[in-house]
Nucleic acid binder design. Structure first.
Lengths: 171, 171
DNA sequence: GCAGAATAGTTTGACTTCTAACTATTTGCT
DNA sequence: AGCAAATAGTTAGAAGTCAAACTATTCTGC
């Protein structure tokens, strides 16, 4: 039987405590746990999206457009709904446009606004990718009860960071 | 009173359910919650580290070196302990070396290995930055009980992703 | 002793993130 | 009507991530 690998986060907690920083250890464990899990989730998701030539960031934009009434939204709205920086939206939409999955057009109502619209090819791709990704979401390695607990706890954190208003559950 | 902002993740859950993908909604909510919280944490942490000219990634490397016996480690060990890709370690150490916070030397015992050592300037900086960051970790917006619940749940996820062995609690 | 396998780290390139600064347009106030 | 403020999106640059491929060195088995 091979030697057990120590959990890097547990080791970090021990280090923090031995250094006399016990009162910060819980916060540090939370931060590094979230960082590590995010990295794992991104890796797993990008693996599933690679056959479609998509990353998660670009998939999310296509998914958002597919949900919207006319399959088109202003760039700013995309950024707000996905909570990413305008420059990040510009960059991702550049690539989606390069791959002919979306089209940019200047709004006729407001010359400042750029509309992003899903193309037929983009729609077909995102629907197929969603099937694959939903399969992944359904088998993510936690029970629904456990997920609900984590999601609510993270919602409290998002609220205390001023990200959202206080309110009802997500799930 | 201004109009309440809807929670983007709650809206996404509604969209998922209306699309008939209810069984994937919990997994999707977990993923987007973790993504968003990670982004918030990185933003908050980088804000506190900016006065030191550090990012969280570089801070972690300095912290790890500061914890090690001789304030030096092989590059590969740094990558394994922090669970980042060798290329990412190369990149971050490039910058730390540029700022004279670390020094690289070739191991005398094994010509393949590169040792990274903390400089006196680097040590001073990381100790000061740690004080600031610990203050942040102590006031992170969740009770220790709540943190413990989330960290354990995320540990289960890390385990089911094959990241770590099953075992005791982190905290 | 040597060749192939394994290990260590780097390089290249793509991608995503954000900050800061910019251009272009609209809004609101006087 | 005109100007300043606000809004929308882009550009430039820096940073960090990883995949793939590379160079260099050590280890292993024959």
């Amino acid at each position: 039987m091979s030697k057990a690998r120590p959990d890097p986060i547990a080791v970090a907690v021990d280090n923090w405590r031995q250094a006399g920083w016990g009162s910060a250890a819980a916060g540090m464990a939370l931060v590094t746990s979230v960082m590590r899990v995010q990295q794992l989730l991104v890796t797993q998701i990008d693996e599933r999206l690679r056959p479609y030539g998509l990353s998660f960031a670009r998939f999310e934009i296509l998914r958002l457009l597919a949900f919207s009434r006319h399959a088109a939204l202003p760039m700013g709205t995309v950024g707000r709904r996905l909570q990413v920086h305008p420059a990040s939206v510009t960059s991702a939409v550049d690539r989606l446009e390069r791959d002919e999955l979306v089209l940019r057009t200047r709004s006729v109502n407001d010359g400042r606004r750029v509309m992003v619209a899903l193309t037929p090819v983009g729609r077909s791709l995102v629907e197929r990718a969603t099937v694959d990704l939903n399969s992944y979401f359904e088998s993510i390695g936690m029970s629904d009860e456990q997920i609900e607990g984590v999601v609510e706890a993270l919602r409290d954190l998002r609220h205390s960071a001023g990200d959202i208003d206080a309110g009802e559950s997500v799930l």
